[in-house]
Simulated assay, not measured.
Amino acid sequence: MMMWSNFFMQEEDRRRREAASRRRAQGQHQLTPEREGKIKLGLLLSAVGATLAVLAVGTEFWVELNTYKTNGSAICEAAHMGLWKMCTKRLWQSDVPAGRDTCGPAELPGEANCTYFKFFTTGENARIFQRTTKKEVNLAAAVIAVLGLAVMALGCLCVIMVLSKGAEFLLRVGAVCFGLSGLLLLVSLEVFRHSVQALVRRVSPEPPPAPALTYEYSWSLGCGVGASLVLLLGGGCFLLLTLPPWPWGSLCPKQGHRAA
Rank of each mutant, 00 (worst) to 15 (best):
residue 19 A to Q: 15
residue 259 A to N: 11
residue 257 H to R: 15
residue 198 A to V: 05
residue 156 C to T: 12
residue 258 R to H: 13
residue 36 E to N: 06
residue 90 R to I: 03
residue 115 T to A: 14
residue 151 V to T: 10
residue 54 V to A: 09
residue 143 V to E: 06
residue 22 R to K: 13
residue 39 I to C: 07
residue 146 V to C: 06
residue 127 R to I: 10
residue 107 E to R: 09
residue 39 I to S: 09
residue 144 I to Y: 00
residue 54 V to F: 04
residue 237 C to L: 14
residue 123 G to K: 01
residue 186 L to M: 10
residue 252 C to I: 10
residue 64 E to M: 00
residue 257 H to W: 14
residue 222 G to N: 08
residue 179 G to C: 07
residue 244 P to I: 08
residue 216 E to R: 14
residue 260 A to K: 14
residue 43 L to R: 14
residue 23 R to A: 15
residue 10 Q to M: 07
residue 179 G to H: 08
residue 128 I to S: 09
residue 116 Y to I: 09
residue 11 E to K: 15
residue 147 L to W: 05
residue 181 S to V: 07
residue 22 R to H: 06
residue 124 E to V: 06
residue 214 T to Y: 03
residue 149 L to F: 06
residue 4 W to M: 15
residue 233 L to E: 02
residue 253 P to Q: 09
residue 192 F to V: 01
residue 14 R to D: 06
residue 44 L to G: 05
residue 31 L to H: 09
residue 245 P to M: 00
residue 229 L to A: 13
residue 163 L to A: 11
residue 159 V to S: 12
residue 46 S to D: 04
residue 156 C to Q: 12
residue 178 F to S: 12
residue 124 E to I: 04
residue 16 R to I: 07
residue 106 A to Q: 01
residue 85 K to Q: 11
residue 232 L to S: 13
residue 199 L to G: 06
residue 224 G to T: 01
residue 45 L to T: 10
residue 194 H to V: 07
residue 81 M to N: 05
residue 135 K to P: 03
residue 233 L to D: 00
residue 177 C to Y: 01
residue 207 P to Y: 07
